[in-house]
Simulated assay, not measured.
Amino acid sequence: MTPSTADRPQMSIEVFEELACHAPETVRLEFIKGKVQVKAAPDGNHNEIVKWLQKQCIQHRPELWLYAEQGLKVDSYRNGRARPDGTLAPDDHFVGAGEWAAPDGVLLVAEVTSYDADTGSRDRVEKPDGYAAAGIPVYLLVDRDASSVTVHSEPENGVYRAVTTRPFGALVELPDPVGFTLDTEKLKHYAD
Results as ranks from 00 to 15, higher is better:
104 D>R: 14
67 Y>T: 05
33 K>C: 02
87 T>V: 15
34 G>L: 07
96 G>M: 10
57 C>H: 05
103 P>L: 05
95 V>I: 11
104 D>C: 05
73 K>A: 06
74 V>I: 15
102 A>K: 12
99 E>C: 06
61 R>A: 14
29 L>Q: 06
44 G>V: 11
65 W>N: 03
78 R>F: 12
56 Q>M: 15
52 W>Y: 15
61 R>W: 06
56 Q>G: 07
67 Y>A: 08
92 D>H: 09
72 L>E: 08
37 Q>T: 11
47 N>D: 12
67 Y>H: 14
92 D>G: 05
85 D>S: 04
40 A>W: 05
62 P>I: 07
92 D>S: 08
55 K>H: 08
87 T>G: 03
34 G>H: 12
92 D>Q: 11
30 E>M: 03
61 R>E: 08
103 P>A: 14
35 K>S: 08
76 S>W: 14
98 G>I: 12
53 L>K: 04
95 V>T: 09
86 G>H: 12
72 L>H: 08
87 T>F: 06
86 G>D: 11
75 D>S: 14
33 K>F: 02
63 E>Y: 04
83 R>N: 07
54 Q>P: 04
55 K>Y: 11
69 E>F: 00
46 H>A: 14
79 N>W: 07
103 P>H: 06
34 G>E: 07
92 D>N: 11
79 N>S: 13
56 Q>S: 14
66 L>M: 07
87 T>I: 08
88 L>M: 15
52 W>M: 15
33 K>G: 03
38 V>E: 09
55 K>L: 10
51 K>P: 00
88 L>N: 02
96 G>F: 12
50 V>N: 08
56 Q>C: 15
50 V>I: 15
104 D>S: 14
49 I>A: 00
54 Q>C: 12
70 Q>C: 06
50 V>R: 01
105 G>E: 08
78 R>E: 01
32 I>L: 13
95 V>M: 05
71 G>T: 01
102 A>G: 02
74 V>N: 14
47 N>P: 06
73 K>Q: 13
36 V>F: 07
57 C>I: 07
80 G>Y: 11
44 G>K: 06
73 K>W: 02
89 A>R: 09
60 H>K: 11
34 G>N: 10
35 K>D: 01
47 N>F: 07
47 N>I: 11
36 V>G: 12
105 G>V: 07
94 F>E: 06
62 P>C: 09
68 A>G: 03
92 D>M: 03
51 K>S: 13
70 Q>P: 03
49 I>S: 00
